[in-house]
Design a protein around this nucleic acid. Structure first.
Lengths: 249, 249
DNA sequence: CAGCTTTCTGCAATTTAATGTAAAATAATG
DNA sequence: CATTATTTTACATTAAATTGCAGAAAGCTG
């Protein structure tokens, strides 16, 4: 059996049963456990499965188990801290929703005086814990999928307030395709925020990079700063640099 | 069973039943109690559950009970349920903030179709759990003490929407002095809500009755229904009856 | 406080993983 | 075809992880 075949077989199995054991595979294919381990390692390196002690789990199993709120939490925290450092005393800051933005809200320094504008209900609740932060909530219909307010009223209000900086929770970002999203109403809100902010910052964990969704929010060059957890020298980031984005962390 | 699988199983259980016992898990999965404890410890370290003596609790369960919002919770729940029974299919409902209103949000029947208008962020988050409820958030500056939006914009918006029924979380109610409150901005919002609603309902636990605060929101006769947990025959309630209030429970 | 249960700690046994090395297979080159 | 390099694999050895157990410590209950 060729190596590729074997790996295809393993992958097929792990996706079918959500789990595989090194021992079973070794017996089933009749190769040493070392070989299986090497295969698993390789597949894991390519992100096809999750290697664990004793075998491997399917990707879907793993993500469903570590619920999305805690998913990549550490990355998000680091990104959020970097983002917080961009905020200066007295600024007007607008933010979208999303878990990374919530982390940003939690990362704000205790004594920061600033005004936050948001249509995200969970984010607003977080800002509330900070005694010196003024909160402006954008009112309108609530989109349940994204937990932010959306609609014409919301967009009108957003455009009425010129923010110094705007933080975008990012669903998908690609150097060529720009910032994209799947929800039409949310896209409108994001566009309005970008339009009425002096500086646009995108917070994106690595896995959102080089992915594309249906609806374009803006082009890559419209974003001023990209904050992600990758090494700034990482080759993945080169196309973004070319588009003039400042990179952080 | 792989370690990750076991932990997924535990997590699934704790989220399902809100609690797990070390012994049960040990028997169920057929590993030693030590192993279960180590798993619980690990999951707790990652913030996925709360470890307690004898087992573990789900995160949501724990936070909903450890907070200080349990004061007079049972009374509030009963009041909330009574209030929920007043809401009919398709109604436009406006609500203020306050813990009793949050209980109302939790008490809503699963399949109710209605539109809720509120400036309260925690209430809006609760409504979000109901699939058939449309939420309109009133935007403006957030008052941290009351966790609702306040200000001219908010009042303008409230007046633009005519609600069928309006539920007021009540700080102080006195038959002679009417409904009173301590926060000027909140009072403005409440007044606007009363003005633009066909029916006004006050939710008040007994200890708020016959108390007065600085600023008058409205007179007693402007309230249509008072919901409290006292016996309707209670002498305390006679002056309210005289003012034409309908009493519930 | 006394008696009970639960938890923690260190330790040993077992299982699993990683690493280095050599043999075999495959590919590349002149 | 011979030979050289590369890849793949198995085996042995060492390292790491997981788990259960015993006894001490801590927590709970009446």
């Amino acid at each position: 059996m060729l190596k590729k075949e074997r790996q295809a077989f393993i992958l097929h199995n792990v996706n079918l049963h959500n789990r595989v054991l090194v021992g079973d595979l070794s017996q089933g294919i009749n190769v040493s456990e070392d070989t299986i381990r090497r295969d698993l390692q390789e597949l894991a390196d390519h992100g096809k499965l999750i290697k664990v002690h004793g075998g491997a789990l399917s990707k879907s199993f793993h993500t469903s188990f570590s619920s999305s709120k805690v998913y990549a939490l550490e990355s998000k925290k680091r990104i959020a801290q970097k983002a917080a450092s961009l905020i200066q005393e007295g600024m007007f800051v607008s933010t979208t929703g999303g878990t990374t933005i919530i982390e940003l809200a939690k990362s704000l320094p205790e004594n920061l005086h600033a005004t936050f504008i948001t249509g995200s209900l969970p984010a607003a609740l977080e800002y509330m814990h900070h005694p010196n932060i003024e909160i402006i909530v954008i009112g309108d219909k609530v989109s349940k999928s994204s937990q932010i307010t959306v609609g014409g009223e919301a967009i009108t209000k957003i455009k009425q307030i010129k923010a110094d900086i705007c933080f975008l929770g990012t669903n998908a970002l690609d150097a060529k395709q720009g910032l994209t999203d799947n929800d039409w109403e949310v896209v409108q809100v994001k566009r309005a925020m970008i339009e009425s902010s002096s500086k646009v910052v995108s917070l994106a964990i690595a896995e959102k990079l080089n992915t594309v969704q249906r609806i374009r929010v803006c082009e890559t060059k419209d974003i001023d700063v990209l904050i992600t957890e990758l090494d700034p020298e990482s080759p993945e980031l080169i196309p973004y640099k070319k588009n003039g984005l400042k990179l952080l962390l």
